[in-house]
């Protein structure tokens, strides 16, 4: 029988910077790929993101970070998820992240980072490779 599970992903834009075009494009692409995308909009604090992720029981949280605050926001979201017993929720992101920061972000548990040039198909492929197998169990 086919797996009845539907992949659910929360897309959020943390931080104070102004627009969420990138986040919206990703949200749209993920929904076009057949996922349920909870979109929470701009100016989200790590606490708000983690609380929403728990209440929505999503498989993953995608963050759009253009402000350069990735080294504080990613760990803050991961910590907030852990504090709510949701450490198993994958955190991925997109935005301007210098190469030097990639390794430390992976080390604290960021599952994937997509650079501004990445296609939405790359993100969908990653979801299929990483999240889909988890749901089969």
């Amino acid at each position: 029988m086919s797996n009845p599970r539907k992949i659910r992903i929360l897309v959020a834009k943390p931080g104070l910077d102004g627009h969420d075009r990138g986040a919206k494009v990703v949200a749209r692409a993920l929904s076009d790929a057949g996922y349920e995308v909870v979109y929470t909009g701009l100016h989200q604090t790590p606490e708000m993101i983690a609380a929403a992720a728990v209440q929505e029981s999503v498989d993953a949280v995608g963050l759009s970070i253009m402000s350069g605050a990735h080294m504080t926001l990613f760990p803050a979201v991961i910590d907030a998820l852990k504090a709510r017993g949701a450490g198993d929720v994958l955190v991925f992101g997109g935005g301007i992240v210098p190469d030097d920061d990639l390794a430390p972000l992976r080390a604290i548990g960021v599952a994937a980072i997509f650079k501004p040039g990445a296609t939405t198909q790359e993100i969908v492929d990653w979801v299929e490779a990483t999240i889909r197998p988890k749901l089969a169990s």
Partner: peptide, 20 residues
């Protein structure tokens, strides 16, 4: 969406101040 089977769930945007 009847085409993709996916959905954008956006109602929460208006209620996020209550998230925490």
């Amino acid at each position: 969406s009847p085409f993709s089977g996916g959905a954008i769930l956006g109602d929460r945007i208006r209620m996020q101040r209550h998230a925490t």
